[in-house]
């Protein structure tokens, strides 16, 4: 990591580092997924992870809130710190409340729209007025006016875009400090996708956002920082490494590596 970039990031975005990855290597069984990633993600910024399939973007993202714990063969070395605390020392339940996640495919629970948000609040022992909180976050994602008369309706009957906004709302309602998004727009139509982009841009006032995307226009539009991961082959294994980490403007206008240049210009290098 280049010290000037860090200064720029800090000056631009104020608060400092939300997530620090230090020499992170992940293995699934004996297969390396990603190796030696070191990067700092700054508070109140949108950071995009981009790169070809199989470069370990999702793996890296899921290490941050320990979703990889579910896969028993995962081995992680290196340090992952969220606000200076090692994630392995934080209770995963507590960690996931502070580091929310939105998935590639909308995955609302098979209950009512209201319950989808209320459930997360309840299991986390939310002390305020639940229905106010539900309304507040449905409004924030622009869903409230569309569903206010049918909050009791099963969430699975919503359209894909509405479901995804509901999933974002239920994540935001817990008021996490960081939101991880794994290709949140990949299964959505362009209009729904733009709405979510606009939402993300508003969100960075309150949250730190890390987003995986295959859509370079989306990355250029919403991201402040871009982490480009590339696939390397060594000793018969294929795994991802960090290729480049720069501000979005720098990355898209003057990429410093040939891999990044080829990727941006969709050339097969």
């Amino acid at each position: 990591m280049n010290p000037e970039q860090k200064t720029v990031g800090t000056v631009l975005q104020g608060e400092g580092v939300s997530i620090a990855l230090e020499d992170v290597t992940v293995f699934y069984g004996i297969n390396p997924a990603i190796q030696n990633v070191t990067l700092d993600i700054y508070s109140n910024t949108v950071t995009a992870f981009i790169g070809p399939s199989g470069c370990g973007k999702t793996t890296l993202l899921r290490c941050i809130n320990r979703m990889n714990d579910m896969i028993t063969t995962t081995q992680i070395t290196g340090a992952i710190r969220v606000f200076g605390e090692d994630v392995r020392k934080i209770d995963p339940i507590e960690l996931r409340r502070r580091v929310g996640m939105v998935f590639q495919r909308p995955n609302p629970f098979p209950t009512s729209i209201y319950e989808n948000i209320a459930l997360g609040l309840r299991v986390n022992g939310f002390r305020g007025n639940i229905s106010d909180q539900v309304e507040k976050y449905l409004r924030l994602v622009g869903l409230y006016d569309e569903v206010k008369d049918r909050l009791k309706m099963n969430a699975l009957q919503l359209s894909g875009g509405q479901q995804q906004r509901l999933c974002i709302a239920r994540t935001l309602a817990l008021e996490p400090e960081i939101i991880l998004m794994d290709e949140p727009c990949s299964s959505l139509d362009p209009i729904s996708s733009i709405r979510i982009d606009n939402l993300i841009t508003q969100l960075k006032k309150y949250f730190t956002v890390v987003i995986i995307t295959h859509n370079l226009q989306q990355a250029a539009r919403i991201a402040d920082w871009v982490a480009f991961l590339k696939v390397v082959e060594a000793e018969g294994a294929r795994f991802g490494v960090l290729g480049e980490y720069a501000t979005s403007t720098d990355f898209f206008t003057k990429p410093s590596s040939i891999d990044a240049y080829n990727y941006i210009n969709t050339r097969i290098g």
């Binding site: 809130n65 979703m67 507590e94 996931r96 998935f103 995955n107 997360g120 299991v123 994540t171 817990l174």
Partner: peptide, 10 residues
């Protein structure tokens, strides 16, 4: 669906 729930700290 389970992951959605775990990710909310359930």
């Amino acid at each position: 669906m389970r992951e959605g729930s775990y990710a909310l700290g359930a």
